[in-house]
Write a protein that binds this DNA or RNA. Structure first.
Length: 324
DNA sequence: AAGTTGAGCAACCGCACGGAA
DNA sequence: TTTCCGTGCGGTTGCTCAACT
């Protein structure tokens, strides 16, 4: 017997409009993520449940950072891809802020090509992570090294998940991730998550206000406005560091009020907001959103600095070979 | 200025898995 | 044990836009 189709006929497809985003976010804020099957009916969205979940996890979920991958992140992705293969969700769990879809896209459109290029000739800045060009090793050595790396990763994870170690590893001058984790610990999980979610949607709407549907009517559809808002959102990283983006005064006020009523969210002033407040991995934020089971250790509490250090330590690769 | 091409990215599709009944 | 349901995941598609001719 076949499965029921996940989507009814007549569901809307294609890019999400800001209005739909608002509906979804406000619903999730009220009910929490999960039970996606009921989301379309409860919200009145003409969207497939999968589509709602995807939209939430890849775009509206709190703590998402978009575009502008750092060199550090690049290296981590390359390392992790070499270790884990195309297990993007697993890779994403090691990269706070990033979604598996984002990483997958980045890999497929950029990193893979760069690696292929560097492998097929000239030396590259990235290509020699596991490339024999700079570290001439045989296939067998490479496999051994990979196995060692996996073992080290396991060891690091085991150590990381040990509660005692975790405390000692959180040094005052630890990286921002650890700091963020600390802030998460000390904050009511749901509130910070949803505030951040509202933050996301508010940013999106700010972009939308710049290019409202009627204004963007040169192409006369809401898709364009959505894409514009996507683009504006994608530029948040730089925009937030350079200053608050300008918005039409009237529209801004109106939307501030809208947001106050919608989310109970006071401020649209991003200059006062730390960027995407919670630094959570995919799994971590899922944990955050769903529920926190007392006494359990989530990956959110993992000392990423340790893993990052290991993942980013290029020199270790060469050193590992000497172990054999 | 108009057409073409390629990169980037959001979203869709289908399969797999785990839990509940 | 089997079936069904909800969800997660990875591959792929299709749209948009910028660069190039």
């Amino acid at each position: 017997m076949g499965r029921l189709p996940c989507c009814d006929k007549g569901v809307k497809k294609g890019p999400w409009t800001p209005e739909e985003d608002i509906i979804l976010v406000s619903y999730i804020q009220e009910h929490g993520p999960g039970n996606w099957r009921t989301v379309p009916t409860n919200t009145g969205l003409c969207r497939c449940s999968k589509s709602c979940r995807l939209r939430w996890t890849n775009y509206l979920r709190p703590g998402i950072k978009r575009g502008n991958f750092t060199k550090q992140e690049e290296k981590m992705i390359i390392h992790l891809q070499a270790l884990l293969g195309n297990r993007w969700a697993a890779i994403a769990s090691y990269l706070p802020h990033r979604t598996d879809n984002d990483i997958k896209n980045y890999w497929n459109t950029y990193l893979k090509k760069r690696l292929e290029k560097s492998e097929s000739g000239s030396e590259g800045t990235l290509g020699n992570v596991y490339n024999s060009a700079s570290n001439p090793v045989t296939k067998g050595q490479w496999e051994k090294r990979l196995q060692t790396d996996i073992n080290m990763a396991k060891k690091a994870l085991t150590e990381a998940l040990s509660p005692k170690k975790m405390l000692s590893l959180h040094e005052p001058n630890d990286d921002s991730i650890s700091n963020d984790i600390g802030s998460i610990k000390s904050t009511t999980p749901n509130s910070i998550c949803y505030a951040s979610s509202a933050d996301n949607i508010a940013r999106l709407l700010k972009g939308w206000m710049k290019n409202p549907p009627n204004k963007a009517s040169s192409k006369s559809n809401s898709i364009v406005s959505t894409q514009n808002s996507f683009n504006n959102l994608a530029g948040i990283d730089t925009a937030s560091s350079e200053g608050t983006p300008s918005v039409g005064a009237k529209g801004s006020v109106e939307f501030s009020e809208t947001f106050k009523s919608l989310f109970g969210y006071e401020s649209l002033d991003y200059s006062s907001n730390s960027e995407f407040s919670p630094s959570l991995s995919h799994e971590a934020s899922t944990l955050c959103q769903d529920e926190r089971k007392p006494g359990t250790t989530s990956i959110a509490e993992m000392p990423f600095s340790l893993l990052e250090k290991w993942l980013l330590d290029d020199t270790k690769i060469g050193a590992d070979a000497t172990l054999f």
